[in-house]
Design a binder for these strands. Sequence first.
DNA 1: AGACTAACCTGAAAGC
DNA 2: TGCTTTCAGGTTAGTC
Length: 292
Amino acid sequence: MPELPEVEVTRRQLSPLLVGRTIRAVATTRPSRFFVTPPRTLARRLLGRRVLTLERRGKYLLARLDDDARLLLHLGMTGQLFAAGIPGVRLLSSTRGSALAPEQQAEAFRPDSHTHLIIRFSDGGPDVLFRDVRKFGRVQWLAAGESSPRLDRLGVDALQARPADLWSATRGRRRCIKALLLDQSVLAGVGNIYADEALFLAGVRPSRRAGRVSRAEGHRLLAGLKRVLQRSLATGGSSISDYIQPGGGRGRYQDERRVYGRTGEPCRRCRTPIVRRLIAQRGSHFCPRCQS
DNA sequence: AGACTAACCTGAAAGC
DNA sequence: TGCTTTCAGGTTAGTC
């Protein structure tokens, strides 16, 4: 699922497809929760606007427009932002990424019922598409100066966090450390995969009470978190379920996972089978021997 | 404060 | 084989 690295990879690849271009047409699917701003309103507001910047805040993407309005995007669980006409996207969007037949790889994506937003530009170049099978993603238009509770709630971006940020958030807290890591108001951008990976690197069980995490462990936790986030960024993110890059490529970080989705497989450090348990209402993976 | 639940959504996987 | 049930999870909202 898209977390900080996937969203940042998306931002980097989507930037040149958006920034500096003027919107000529907008096509959408029917109104749904996907559209925080109703599709017709959205289309009206975007028409004729030029995109000035594309930035990331936690798992959100924020496009600034030339009228000082902003377009807020969230990929949710299965969101895919990409350029139209690139080969193979439809097939790559299926889970598990089985091997593709060569003739299928050359097949270009055509908008389907899950393609909720299509943006066309005045330069006639490639369209930008937002596809989301489960519709957990969000699109919202923000007027100039309009605040957004979603954005305002976010804590420090996980890549910018300092040990003191995590330390102060854990002091005296009874909730488990995994829940705290997933709390976007504490560290923005962390999701299930990287929380589990970071906890493994720090040797801390996801079920441990946050207040019981020592200063040294907290330090290791944040260092481990940044390490896995940076490494994932460098490998193009994790293409575990539906994530694809705007250019159609797949990330490779899933090959480097230490615990996430490795239930029953041997721990890479001690060979003990990785355990999966429901913690903080999330599937949580850890090594029962390496993490305490 | 925070644990828990429901809701949203669909396709894959598991169950029968 | 084929139909049915379960499951996955980011975020918000609401209850206790």
